[in-house]
């Protein structure tokens, strides 16, 4: 039944839109569409953003693993390429601090009236476009460290539920300590 739904192109576009509406609504209710909250997170003064992400990851980890265990969807991890992930991640991080928003929260910030977020979005369009143009010249860099899709349970050769449990405990403990120390 679900497989049939996946093939219904129009319904899927509507679903994507509705999930996006929920996502944007929640990002704004969490304060994550606010430049000040994100930059104060990066300055380690306000941990709202990490609390949102950590709770989303704990919730997501448990649910996604239940879904792949008992229902039709399968995991779709992105490939592990450590070189472009580290270099691209650092470039992303620099942009994250300067724009004070990320690709999702910048879209949300536009909805809340942030004019500067519109310029950030234009920058992201151009940045992604530049990447698309230089991509053919970077094929060695993009592929030389590609190990395919690697999940942490695969790497360690253990049942995924152990990792879900251990990571949930670690993330919850970090949030508990943040609360205790008044963040």
């Amino acid at each position: 039944m679900l497989e049939e739904l996946y093939d219904e192109k129009k319904k899927q576009l509507i679903l994507g839109f509705l999930i996006g509406v929920g996502f944007g609504f929640l990002l704004d209710k969490g304060g994550a569409t606010d430049f000040n909250i994100i930059v104060n997170q990066l300055l380690l003064k306000d941990f709202t953003v990490l609390k949102i992400i950590f709770t989303a990851v704990i919730t997501g980890m448990v649910g996604v693993h239940l879904i792949v265990r008992y229902m039709s969807p399968e995991l779709q991890p992105k490939p592990f390429r450590w070189k472009p992930i580290i270099i691209g991640g650092l470039i992303f991080g620099a942009g994250f601090a300067i724009l004070g928003l990320c690709p999702g929260t910048a879209a949300g910030a536009m909805g809340t009236g942030a004019v500067h977020a519109i310029f950030g979005v234009i920058g992201m369009l151009v940045g992604a476009g530049i990447f698309a143009s230089v991509y053919p010249h970077m094929s060695d860099f993009m592929s030389e460290s590609d190990k395919g899709t690697v999940t942490i349970p695969d790497l360690l050769g253990v049942n995924a539920w152990w990792i879900v449990l251990i990571f949930s405990i670690i993330l919850a403990a970090v949030m508990y300590l943040l609360e205790i120390y008044g963040f």
Binding site: G89, F96, I98, P103, A128, I130
Partner: peptide, 8 residues
Amino acid sequence: GGLLLGFG
């Protein structure tokens, strides 16, 4: 900032 985000 957006340029770096999009590229990164």
